[in-house]
Design a protein around this nucleic acid. Structure first.
Lengths: 178, 178
DNA sequence: GTCTATATCAAGATAGAC
DNA sequence: GTCTATCTTGATATAGAC
């Protein structure tokens, strides 16, 4: 269930984050500019600075939302009991494919942790740790596999005829064999 | 041994690629601008366009070199016989750590294959395919793991205390267990 | 092979009025 | 909360002279 924590943003700041998210997802990271975000709201770029100190802060708000949404997907995976690594991998891949530009913003660069809503990154990581048998090394290795597959998929690095599903299956079988 | 194929570039173009590579490796991808490359050679940016049609072509020349160097590392790994996946993983990680900005240029974005020197990507991929028992799915899964680990390492995504070595070992063991 | 001059475009951000 | 006007910076690329 959506536990709906109180929003840390003012109503107008929330509208700005929503607009920024729309720009990002529909036009890509390069199009995520203060001008474009403002234009989507029918205002001018300088007005945004009354609500966010700079662009980094706005991006961090998008990323914090992304981690919460990813965590919710993880927490709803393998419904009923504890999620298995295969369930989380499916949820992870689905999230990345549904929001490719958001995924890259969240994972493919240095993370300004000092600007994030506290705890959101950890919340998204916890289900993976648990599914890996509370083995941090195994959780990190599995995460790396999923991240690598996702990025290679998103950037179109596999050859045209490649069976991406089979590569996912092969990797997951390796990580879940005992 | 370095079989030294004939250079496809004119001598001056080769100097430009060398300068560009130096800018990239020492200052990062954002600093890889036509102005900065020219400045390193003591000339002006417009002069570069007599040697390369545009920036994409210059980047592609850097990337082609990178694939050749990566292939050479792979071909020299596990010296003597055929390389094992663990050997290639070590070589892969070493390459990425020695040339982090080059690595990201090569792997972390869409690849302009139409601008590459033909065959260089395939040459770097072949040793991995062979080490994976000529199983393309296994080769791709192992590559994804290595790429994911590398990117998470380069972007500083693992928590401060994380034992990255152990995560590599855990993943490699998963892929090499039978 | 390199130059100057320039076109074109666009980014983040600030000052100060309303 | 938004505006206009502006600053500052910097990118790729072309034209045409030397």
């Amino acid at each position: 269930m959506a536990s709906s924590a109180p929003d840390r943003l003012t109503p107008r700041a929330r509208e700005i984050v929503t607009a920024a998210r729309e720009v990002l997802e529909s036009e890509g990271l390069a199009a995520l500019t203060m001008r474009n975000v403002a234009a989507r709201l029918g205002i001018r770029a300088p007005s945004l600075y009354k609500h966010f100190p700079d662009k980094d802060a706005l991006e961090a708000a998008i990323i914090s939302d992304g981690f919460v949404e990813m965590a919710e997907e993880f927490e709803g995976a393998g419904d009923g009991g504890a999620a298995l690594l295969v369930d989380l991998a499916a949820a992870y891949r689905a999230f990345a494919r549904a929001h490719p530009h958001l995924y890259r913003l969240m994972t493919d660069q240095e993370l300004r942790r000092d600007l994030l809503v506290p705890g959101v990154e950890e919340r998204a990581a916890l289900p993976v740790y648990l599914a890996a048998g509370e083995n941090a090394d195994r959780a990190r290795a599995a995460w790396a596999f999923a991240h690598g597959m996702t990025m290679l998929e998103l950037t179109g690095r596999f050859p045209p005829g490649a069976d991406v599903e089979a590569a996912w299956d092969t990797g997951l079988r390796a990580f879940t064999a005992r």
